[in-house]
Write a protein that binds this DNA or RNA. Structure first.
Lengths: 145, 145
DNA sequence: TCGATATAGTTACAGCCGTAACTGTAATTT
DNA sequence: AAATTACAGTTACGGCTGTAACTATATCGA
């Protein structure tokens, strides 16, 4: 009778592997927005989402990013404090606010986009184009797990 | 002149993709050890490392897992509280403790190994063997980024 | 030997996190 | 219309986090 224990190797276990690689890639870019603007990951994602899609509501940001609504709420508050976004109350439904970047917010987004594209290139050069695409596709596929 | 902004898509940005997929995979298994034993991820990793390699020092656990030393310190404390591990002070260097699982700790490890293998199979079935291996290999490659 | 440096591991602190409960508003039911 | 239910967003709370400072021990260099 074979022991289950011997079949298990943490270093080949997908949750471990994924998290490990994710930290590596994700923290590499975090250093950039953290050092440049003192932003958290939630703030960066909210900024990026608003920069990419234009004005959205908090709920729409949740949908686009998968961030928890409390993270969005806090990130929006903090970005607003920097004067990087404005809230515009919806007249038909006063629970809802349109969130739109100010020009300062857009500048910061532009600057981080360029850094993001450079970072992307760095990882792509490391992996090679073919593997980079393979990896992106596999990760996208996992969204439906 | 083309704007950098238009080239940037958060949903195709590797740090975002990686983190998203990682959460999905990693939290799927977290539910198991959290619900079954009320463990945190750090605690699970320390348990798994001790289970797999036998007795180790805290520093060796850091090396094997990449966990921050404060996480290891706290996880060891908490696992010790459950009586799942014992500390044995090194006689030559009294700063160091050998950490070894008790039989209760080993049972818990066994139980989670089986769950881990089942979870692994679930993800493998979802992706297919070929893609599963491709993904594992790519993630392993990223460790050297 | 003695002072300086390095290492193993812990802890205080301040910040981030998710859960659950909350406020305020809108929509639905009776 | 009043009561109920649903929804957008916020917040209190307790738990987890990393940084930096710490304790205790060991090692190195003069």
């Amino acid at each position: 009778m074979k022991s289950e224990k011997s079949e298990f190797d943490l270093h080949r276990f997908l949750p471990f592997l994924m998290h490990h690689a994710s930290e590596k890639v994700s923290l590499g870019f975090r250093d950039i927005y953290r050092d440049r603007y003192r932003m958290t990951r939630s703030e960066w994602r909210v900024l990026a989402t608003l920069g990419q899609y234009g004005a959205l509501t908090a709920t729409e940001i949740v949908t686009h990013t998968g961030l928890h609504k409390t993270k969005v709420s806090r990130a929006v508050f903090s970005i607003e404090q920097r004067r990087w976004l404005r809230r515009v109350q919806n007249e038909n439904d006063r629970r809802v606010h349109r969130l739109e970047l100010t020009s300062q917010g857009q500048s910061a987004f532009q600057s981080l986009c360029e850094a993001g594209i450079a970072y992307d290139k760095k990882v792509r050069d490391f992996l090679g184009d073919a593997d980079f695409k393979r990896l992106s596709d596999l990760l996208t596929k996992l969204n439906d797990l």
